[in-house]
Simulated scan of single mutants.
Amino acid sequence: MLSALYSLITGIGVGLLFAALKFPIPAPNHINGVLGILGIFLGYWIIGYFRKG
């Protein structure tokens, strides 16, 4: 759980840095892109779950 918090803090820091330097965001800038990444993660997790079973 602590590593998830570190990841979130690092992501916020990178986002702030990119915004301050006026660089384009290094991630999907629409909810569809974010949901696509979430879908890839969930698909990978589901297959892993059934392979262990």
Rank of each mutant, 00 (worst) to 15 (best):
I25H: 08
G39F: 11
H30S: 11
P24M: 07
K52R: 14
G36L: 06
F50A: 02
L38W: 07
L42D: 00
I40G: 08
V34D: 07
F41W: 14
Y44T: 05
F41Y: 15
A27Y: 13
P28E: 06
F23Y: 12
F50H: 09
V34L: 12
H30A: 10
L38T: 03
W45H: 06
I25A: 14
V34W: 02
G33S: 04
G48H: 05
I37V: 13
A27L: 12
P26N: 12
W45D: 11
G36P: 00
G48L: 10
F41M: 09
L35A: 13
P28S: 04
I37P: 00
F23R: 14
P28D: 05
K52P: 00
G43T: 04
F23W: 15
I47P: 02
Y44K: 00
I47R: 14
F50V: 09
L42H: 01
L42K: 01
Y44R: 02
P26I: 07
G36F: 14
G36C: 03
K52H: 06
L42V: 14
I31A: 12
G39A: 13
P24W: 01
V34Y: 02
W45R: 06
F41A: 13
I25M: 15
R51H: 04
R51T: 06
I47T: 13
P24V: 05
V34P: 00
R51P: 01
I47L: 13
Y49F: 11
L38D: 03
I31V: 15
G48N: 15
Y44F: 15
R51L: 10
G53L: 13
P24K: 11
F41C: 12
H30Y: 08
Y44C: 07
L35I: 14
G43F: 13
P24Y: 03
L42F: 15
G33L: 11
N29H: 08
G39N: 06
I47C: 03
F50R: 05
